[in-house]
Design a protein around this nucleic acid. Structure first.
Lengths: 110, 110
DNA sequence: CTGTATCCGGCTAGATACTG
DNA sequence: CAGTATCTAGCCGGATACAG
C-alpha cells in the first residue's frame, strides 16, 4: 500500500480533522470491534472485521496507532501474541459515534 | 462525474450508513456553510466552500438532496435564482457533528 | 501467529469548456 | 445565474504471494 498523502496533520477545521482520523473504509468497524471487546489479538480482530485482508488491516492499524486511536501491545512469546485496544482518546470518541449512529438509524427508517 | 456506485442505500450498520451520507470531501463543508447561513444561493454557497468547482458542487448537492440532507428551492425568475438549505434531518445532524468537532479539536491539541 | 511486498484496478473528484 | 459534458489523474484499497 502507498504512503499516506491524505491526512494533513492538524488540519484547520476540527471536524474535518476528526473525519480524516476516523474516515476510510475500515476505521469505524475496527473501532467498533475494539469497543465491544476491550482488547483483541490480531487474528481475532481480523475475524471481527468481516472481509478485511491482512494487508489492509495491518496498514490501517498502523495508521490508527500513529493517530493515537489504538494501542498495540506485543508479547515476546512464541507463537507471537499481539493485542490491540482503544486509547482513551479512542474511547472518548464513542459517544459521538453513538450519536451519529442514532441519526443514521433514523435516516435508514425513512 | 460518474454515477454513484458507492452508497448502498440502507446499509446494515447505521453508523456506516451515516458516514456514507456525510462522508466525501465536500459534504461537511457544505453542511457547515448551510448551517451557518440558513439558506444560500448557488454562487454564495460556492464562495462559502473554498476551492470547490461547479462540476463537483452541483453534483454533490444533487446527491445530498436525494439523501434528504438538503433542499433545493428554485424561483422562476430571470436571472435564475436557486436557494439551498438544510432539511430538518440535516439540522438534526449538527449536534453530533459538534460533538465530533470537539473531539477533533482535542486531538489537534496533542 | 502476525504480519509485509508488489502489483493493480476502480472510484472520487478535478480541469476545462460549454449551455439554458 | 446556475449549472452540465467530457476527459483525466491520483488516491484508496484489493489480490496474491511471501516472511519472521
Amino acid at each position: 500500500m502507498n504512503e499516506e498523502p491524505r491526512y494533513k496533520r492538524k488540519e484547520d477545521c476540527p471536524l474535518t480533522y476528526a473525519f480524516a482520523l476516523i474516515g476510510g473504509k475500515w476505521r469505524l468497524p475496527i473501532i467498533w470491534a475494539l469497543w465491544k471487546n476491550e482488547k483483541l489479538r490480531y487474528n481475532e480482530l481480523k475475524r471481527s472485521v468481516d472481509g478485511i485482508t491482512n494487508m489492509v488491516l495491518s496498514h490501517t492499524l498502523k495508521e490508527m496507532e500513529s493517530y493515537g486511536l489504538v494501542v498495540r501491545k506485543q508479547y515476546m512469546e512464541i507463537p507471537p501474541r499481539v493485542e490491540y485496544s482503544l486509547t482513551e482518546a479512542g474511547k472518548d470518541l464513542v459517544p459521538s459515534l453513538e450519536s451519529l449512529a442514532k441519526w443514521g438509524k433514523a435516516m435508514q427508517n425513512k
